[in-house]
């Protein structure tokens, strides 16, 4: 269970980090890191302003 970040789309704004209920995401400079607490809930993918995130169930 995780999310895939399309780095070619991502604008590294951190909005996904703010909505992640599990606190599984982190914005490091220009990329998003996902840790193993991700539950694939999909909130990050829903709110991404550019649609850069895809959830894998």
């Amino acid at each position: 269970m995780s999310v895939i970040v399309n780095r070619y789309k991502c604008g590294y704004c951190g909005a996904c980090v703010g909505v992640c209920p599990a606190g599984a995401l982190e914005l490091v400079e220009t990329w998003i890191e996902v840790d193993n607490t991700c539950t694939s809930c999909g909130v990050c993918a829903k709110i991404c302003p550019v649609g850069a995130l895809v959830v894998i169930k």
Partner: peptide
């Protein structure tokens, strides 16, 4: 530490935003 704040969560304060609590912008 802004919209993506981690400091609050680490300190035991739940700052996570629901979709209705965030405006997503370009």
């Amino acid at each position: 530490d802004g919209v993506e704040s981690k400091v609050g969560r680490w300190g035991g304060i739940d700052t996570s935003l629901k979709p209705v609590d965030i405006n997503t912008c370009t």
